[in-house]
């Protein structure tokens, strides 16, 4: 993958993300009707759900990258897997922050409290914490192959963990799952805004993750240059 390629893909993603986001914002504010009980604050919902979905997707990709990192031996594949891992984790943390800010803002308007232990919000919080733990491991468990391997292991374990967390928090409040977010999207205008927002957030996520991964590969390239320099020292 030469530098030309990378720039083109990065640019294409960024442009697509920008365009879609503008379209989504337009749809949110000018196409989707104002919701009766909540008014304009309801519109935060569109970004909120898109972010949550992408956070989970980012985790899945991070786990796949982690599995690749641990399973293969080829250094270049491992380097790529490592770059994708850190990129998806950082973007995932950002998405998590968005979810955990927009969620309470919505909840305050809808239910009167900033936080409830509603299953999906709780799950988002846990995924956010898992991403934080992943980044903490990368920062403190060693910046060598070993530390990266520990973080990769956590990302893999996170998949069944999220599955169990999901079940546990759904049934935590009682035998009947509390489904709160469904309903209210029968109006075509709202549906359009919703799916455009999901697409927009997805493209933004992809664009950011891509750039971050590229930056990581550039950092790896710098390390490789230093290594080459070190290799040549002492040669006659």
């Amino acid at each position: 993958m030469g530098r030309g390629w990378t720039r083109w893909i990065g640019a294409a993603l960024a442009v697509a993300a920008l365009v879609t986001m503008l379209a989504a914002l337009y749809a949110i504010f000018f196409v989707a009707p104002l919701e009766m009980t909540m008014g304009i604050a309801q519109k935060i919902f569109y970004i909120h759900v898109g972010s949550a979905m992408n956070m989970l997707l980012a985790f899945g990709v991070c786990a796949l990258a982690g599995a690749t990192f641990l399973a293969v031996r080829a250094p270049r594949a491992r380097a790529m897997a490592d770059a994708i891992g850190v990129a998806t984790a950082e973007v995932g943390v950002t998405l998590g922050a968005i979810v955990l800010v927009t969620g309470p803002l919505w909840a305050r308007k809808a239910w009167g409290t900033w936080w409830t232990w509603e299953p999906r919000l709780t799950l988002s919080l846990m995924v956010f914490l898992l991403f934080l733990a992943y980044l903490a491991l990368r920062a403190f468990a060693g910046s060598d192959r070993f530390g990266r391997g520990v973080a990769a292991g956590l990302s893999i374990m996170g998949i069944p963990a999220i599955y169990f967390i999901h079940f546990a928090v759904e049934r935590w409040g009682g035998a009947h799952p509390q489904v709160v977010y469904k309903g209210g999207l029968t109006v075509p205008g709202m549906k359009l805004a919703f799916w455009l927002s999901v697409l927009a957030v997805s493209l933004v996520t992809a664009a950011l993750a891509y750039q971050r991964a590229v930056i990581e590969t550039q950092r790896q390239a710098i390390d490789a240059l230093f290594l080459e320099l070190d290799r040549r020292e002492g040669l006659p």
């Binding site: 390390d223 230093f226 290594l227």
Partner: peptide, 10 residues
């Protein structure tokens, strides 16, 4: 063997 940016063994 590489540690960081150095060859410890080459």
């Amino acid at each position: 063997r590489i540690i960081g940016r150095r060859h410890v063994l080459r």
